Amino acid sequence: MTSTVTVRDYRPADAKAVADLRRAVLPYRLATPRGIAWEVSTAPAAQHLRLCVAQRDGRIVGAVQAGVLHDAAVPGQAAVSLQVHPGHRGLGVGHALLASAEDHLFAAGADRIFAWAADEPGTPAFARRHGYRRARPAHYLRLDLTSCGLPPLPSALPSGVRLHTGADFEADPRLLYAADAEVSADEPGEVTLDALAYEDWLLHVWEHPTLDPDLTSVVTVDGEIASFALAATDGDTRYSSAMTGTRRAFRGRGLAGLAKACSLHRARDAGCTEAFTHNDAGNTAMLAVNRAFGYRPYAAAWRYVRERAAD
């Protein structure tokens, strides 16, 4: 007899189980109990964040996070992130979780929902059944820090160029926020995240428990932030690129590569053994930088979109 699946709202005591689930389903994404608890407890009201879990036989076997993209200038956009444990698929868990998330988002005023999904058998059919069309591809890459040959850092930097850690900006990270906002607005994709207020960025990016200021690298040119590589870790051996980019006026000079090289060297020295990154397939410049470092394909994903007007 098939056991009953129960969907309910997340509780603080669920943080570890949700983190374990995310690591099992998405091994290329950082997931820690502290990070999950932080995201839920600090979510701004405008995001309408809701995290639901699915229980089966008393065990959490699925989870879905849903929220309005309040940091996008275009209103009515939202995102869902759905995970179902591989051993519990085909039992209606994903359907029940997704229905709960969509009801919540539509009630919050969303008319377009985005979701990233791993390129796995069964995913396209599941998406079609639920009204989602496949849009853009993306790549998850992995770098083995124990065996890769990272390029050496230059013995001397060009005139006016300096390397910093993120910790150098902890007293006032506003300039780093401005650089991140400019770079994020240029990222390829259907959604342009160009309306994130400084206070939200400070709380949900800079103060996020997984962000590591000491491993974050910032390149300045004549005292002005030109490029940066935000670094996140799980507090153990896994490193992830949170954002790497160069401001428009400084592109084409190899500064993103310099920032990332410095960050990766620090990560390896700190005991990290593997590094992950995620790039939209249209971000050819950053894909080239990552492959030059030795990152190799680890998983493929697709962006899926559901338009409420098409229902």
Rank of each mutant, 00 (worst) to 15 (best):
residue 231 A to T: 04
residue 212 D to G: 00
residue 161 V to Y: 08
residue 126 F to S: 01
residue 297 P to Q: 02
residue 51 L to I: 08
residue 20 D to M: 10
residue 228 F to V: 02
residue 272 C to N: 04
residue 59 R to G: 14
residue 245 G to K: 00
residue 3 S to G: 12
residue 72 A to R: 11
residue 73 A to G: 09
residue 264 L to D: 02
residue 81 S to G: 13
residue 92 G to K: 09
residue 188 P to Y: 02
residue 296 R to F: 14
residue 1 M to A: 15
residue 6 T to Y: 11
residue 6 T to A: 15
residue 159 S to M: 13
residue 199 E to K: 01
residue 180 D to S: 11
residue 11 R to I: 03
residue 133 R to I: 15
residue 63 A to L: 12
residue 63 A to R: 06
residue 139 H to Q: 14
residue 186 D to M: 01
residue 74 V to W: 06
residue 273 T to P: 02
residue 131 G to K: 04
residue 102 E to A: 09
residue 34 R to W: 09
residue 167 A to N: 10
residue 252 G to D: 03
residue 311 D to I: 12
residue 278 H to K: 14
residue 286 M to H: 07
residue 189 G to K: 02
residue 176 L to G: 02
residue 40 V to H: 03
residue 156 A to F: 08
residue 149 G to V: 15
residue 299 A to K: 06
residue 83 Q to N: 13
residue 229 A to M: 04
residue 6 T to N: 12
residue 240 S to G: 11
residue 109 G to Y: 04
residue 111 D to K: 11
residue 226 A to S: 12
residue 112 R to M: 07
residue 182 E to T: 06
residue 47 Q to K: 14
residue 232 A to N: 13
residue 273 T to W: 00
residue 132 Y to A: 11
residue 5 V to Y: 02
residue 40 V to E: 10
residue 285 A to T: 14
residue 175 L to R: 14
residue 249 A to G: 03
residue 237 T to I: 08
residue 124 P to S: 03
residue 247 R to Y: 08
residue 186 D to N: 09
residue 281 A to T: 12
residue 24 A to K: 11
residue 267 A to N: 10
residue 14 D to P: 05
residue 199 E to I: 08
residue 7 V to Q: 12
residue 71 D to P: 11
residue 280 D to Y: 02
residue 233 T to K: 01
residue 201 W to D: 05
residue 134 R to E: 04
residue 17 A to I: 09
residue 44 P to E: 06
residue 206 W to S: 04
residue 59 R to S: 14
residue 309 A to N: 12
residue 85 H to A: 11
residue 238 R to G: 11
residue 70 H to T: 11
residue 310 A to H: 08
residue 151 P to R: 10
residue 192 T to G: 08
residue 137 P to T: 14
residue 207 E to Q: 15
residue 189 G to N: 00
residue 229 A to K: 06
residue 5 V to A: 00
residue 99 A to F: 04
residue 114 F to K: 12
residue 277 T to N: 09
residue 81 S to T: 13
residue 148 C to I: 08
